[in-house]
Simulated scan of single mutants.
Amino acid sequence: MKKITLLLAVSALASVVGCSKSDNYTPPENASGEDIFYANCTKCHKPETAGSVMTLSSATANKDAIIQKIHTGSMSMPAFPNIKGEQAQRLAEFILANSRTK
């Protein structure tokens, strides 16, 4: 039982380590929001069933909040300072159009 618990703890830690601090990913200038999401965001955000890419809280279900989170990150999400301008707008629009709100 201790081995299983240790294995689960190590697996959880490994998945969180990949999703922290800052990420220097820079999307191609003409990348669509969908391209950016699937090229980089799916490292941590696995698309959900029923056709949605993620579930947003009511506080984050708007473009400004999504762009803010992209730029600053959060507890386990890295900041993406190189996703800005039109690219950030396209990514936020894709996320909003393809997510559900809880």
Rank of each mutant, 00 (worst) to 15 (best):
K69H: 06
S57K: 12
C44D: 05
T5W: 14
S20Y: 06
F80P: 03
A14N: 10
G85M: 06
I95D: 00
S15L: 15
T42E: 08
G85A: 06
T55V: 12
L6S: 09
K46P: 05
T101R: 03
T60P: 00
S11M: 15
S52E: 11
G73N: 05
M75V: 11
A9F: 14
S74W: 00
L91H: 06
K102P: 12
T72F: 03
F37M: 07
A59L: 13
D23R: 01
C41T: 07
E48H: 09
E93R: 00
K2W: 10
R100W: 06
N24L: 13
L91M: 06
L6T: 11
Q89F: 09
T49F: 09
M54D: 09
C19P: 00
V17W: 13
I36C: 07
K63V: 00
T26V: 12
F80M: 11
H45A: 02
I67V: 15
S99F: 02
A59Q: 15
S74K: 00
K43H: 11
T55G: 03
L13V: 14
I4C: 09
A92T: 02
Q68N: 15
P47H: 09
M75F: 12
V10A: 12
Q87H: 07
I66H: 02
H45Y: 07
I66Q: 03
S76H: 10
L8V: 14
S58K: 15
A88H: 08
Y25P: 03
A79L: 04
L91W: 04
P78N: 02
I70N: 04
G51K: 07
A92D: 01
D64F: 00
S22A: 11
T5G: 14
S11H: 08
T26N: 11
S15Y: 15
Y25D: 01
L13F: 15
H71P: 06
A9T: 13
N98H: 12
I95H: 01
P27A: 13
C44A: 10
A14P: 02
G85D: 07
F94C: 04
E86S: 14
T72Q: 14
A59V: 10
I66W: 01
A9N: 04
K102Y: 10
L56C: 08
N62I: 02
F37Q: 00
C19D: 09
K69I: 00
T60R: 08
T60A: 07
S58E: 14
E48D: 14
A65R: 00
M1R: 11
E34Y: 06
E29Q: 12
N24R: 10
G33F: 03
G33E: 04
N40Q: 15
T42Q: 10
S58Q: 13
E48A: 14
I4A: 15
P47V: 09
L56M: 05
A92G: 06
L8W: 09
S15P: 05
L6Q: 10
K46Y: 10
N40G: 02
I83W: 07
A65V: 00
G73T: 04
G85R: 03
C44Y: 07
A59C: 01
S57D: 11
